[in-house]
């Protein structure tokens, strides 16, 4: 018996919900061979603005959670990714045109990377923070704190899931909230990751996923006064010099584009890049 195909129209992931684009636009996701796969929402600048509002309101809770708790929540995402292996592999094979083995390897690496970053949540402060030497009867301590709302242009080439995870996970570790513009031509992994996040313990608004054109949204995110940092890792093909200039207008921290298969490779530096160092002094006991 033949069945009618059920073509899907995916939505955005903003504030823990799945809204359509405010603009009502969608665009077609094509398989590597050029066949129709599904429709994705084409986010507009207003969706980006709404995502920033959601990220800002989620910041207090996420940054205020204990580091141990954040680590557990992030680890739980890796567990859920593991449970959806088959779906991710299938989507990667379809959109990227790679072999199932290569897709499987990519999913493995993405999950491993997520676990690796989750482990850093209650450890990076010990490495990036410091007790400063002083010549007086008090302590002087520097601790990293989350920067705030981080906008990310996800890598637009290479593995669609691995690139996204490599960019999003390190920003979450320190307690930042994220607005990420997914891979434009291969957004299926991002959409599925949104579904994973929605059923995980990550509070709504901590990760917001926009599908659509980075060229359209990046300038609005870069110049947005309520975005504290922007990761241009996947913005290599855009006019990223001007994005940096726009970002500087409102003192937004910027990470530069990276190209090639090693883009956003795992490192402590990517975690620390989205932190601000707070230095405080404290009295010693009067003994």
């Amino acid at each position: 018996m033949t069945r009618l195909a059920v073509p899907k129209t995916y939505k955005l992931y903003i504030g823990g919900k799945f809204p359509r684009s405010e603009s009502g636009r969608v665009y077609e996701i094509r398989s590597h061979g050029g066949g129709f796969l599904a429709n994705a929402a084409q986010a507009s600048r207003k969706d980006a603005r709404d995502a920033v509002v959601a990220a800002r309101s989620a910041l207090g809770g996420w940054a205020g959670a204990t580091a141990y708790n954040r680590g557990q929540v992030l680890y739980r995402i890796a567990e859920l990714l593991e449970g959806r292996r088959v779906q991710f592999i299938d989507e990667i094979v379809q959109t990227e045109g790679v072999t199932p083995n290569a897709a499987s390897a990519q999913v493995d690496e993405a999950i491993d990377r997520w676990v690796w970053y989750a482990g850093w949540a209650d450890k990076y402060v010990q490495v990036a923070g410091n007790a400063n030497p002083v010549s007086g009867p008090y302590f002087n301590i520097s601790v990293p704190e989350p920067t705030g709302v981080v906008a990310i242009i996800a890598p637009q080439s290479g593995g669609s899931l691995l690139g996204l995870v490599s960019a999003v996970a390190p920003a979450l570790v320190a307690g930042n909230t994220v607005v990420v513009v997914a891979n434009e031509t291969m957004p299926l992994s991002a959409v599925s990751l949104g579904e994973v996040l929605a059923t995980s313990d990550v509070p709504g608004g901590v990760v917001n996923i926009l599908t659509g054109s980075p060229a359209e949204m990046a300038p609005w995110l870069a110049s947005h006064a309520d975005v504290n940092a922007i990761d241009l890792v996947g913005a290599g093909d855009l006019d990223w010099v001007n994005l940096q200039i726009d970002a500087a207008e409102t003192l937004t921290r910027v990470l530069q584009p990276e190209n090639g298969p090693d883009a956003a490779s795992p490192s402590l530096a990517r975690i620390v890049a989205f932190t601000e160092t707070k230095t405080i002094w404290h009295t010693k006991g009067l003994i």
Partner: peptide
């Protein structure tokens, strides 16, 4: 209002 004057989105810090 600031968005309309400056051309970019403003934030609660302003």
């Amino acid at each position: 209002r600031q968005k309309m004057t400056t051309g970019h989105y403003s934030g609660p810090d302003y």
